[in-house]
């Protein structure tokens, strides 16, 4: 099962390398990793999606916590949370395909960001599964390029990941 681990980490050079290095050194999987500063410029927030049995996930969170730069972390997939990923798709849009893709974009509540006589760039946000579904529906043949941000997430309600 996928776990979404949100991490508050000191915004120091090398902090990202420490996290990435930990995963490669210990043979853990990273499905996706996003990182950006928070409202407090001394802190970055990372969202890391990983897989593994409960023992491995336990070790991953312990090892991450052990990194000196890590201030706090939480496995948000263990509580009610909201997760989102942003995707941009450059799709081939010719003849009847143009209408079809526009319709699909509407169904998936996406936006068309760029239009040329032969292509569209579509923006979609949502859970990973929704993005996967969109790609499946559009079909491999029509897809020129895909870029995804990786999952980010936040806990619902009062609880949160704050210092």
């Amino acid at each position: 099962m996928s776990h979404i681990i949100s991490i508050l980490i000191e915004n120091e050079s090398g902090a990202l390398a420490r996290v990435a290095g930990l995963f490669s050194a210990r043979g853990y999987n990273i499905e996706s990793l996003t990182v950006a500063p928070t409202q407090d410029p001394t802190l970055s927030r990372m969202t890391l999606v990983t897989t593994g049995n409960p023992e491995i996930i336990e070790q991953i969170t312990k090892q991450l916590n052990k990194l000196i730069d890590v201030v706090k972390l939480i496995d948000i997939s263990e509580s009610t949370h909201i997760e989102r990923e942003l995707m941009m798709v450059k799709a081939r849009a010719v003849n009847g395909g143009r209408e079809e893709i526009m319709r699909l974009t509407e169904i998936f509540r996406g936006n068309i960001l760029d239009v040329t006589p032969t292509t569209y760039i579509i923006e979609i946000t949502g859970e990973k599964s929704k993005l996967d579904a969109f790609l499946n529906t559009v079909g491999e043949d029509n897809i020129i390029e895909v870029v995804r941000s990786g999952t980010t997430g936040i806990l619902r309600g009062e609880r949160g990941l704050i210092v």
């Binding site: 050079s13 090398g14 390398a17 420490r18 290095g21 050194a25 000196i68 730069d69």
Partner: peptide, 14 residues
């Protein structure tokens, strides 16, 4: 050397 030693130190600083 910070990169090289990262996996074998408790922490390092540049």
């Amino acid at each position: 050397i910070s990169g090289i030693t990262r996996p074998c130190v408790k922490h390092n600083f540049l």
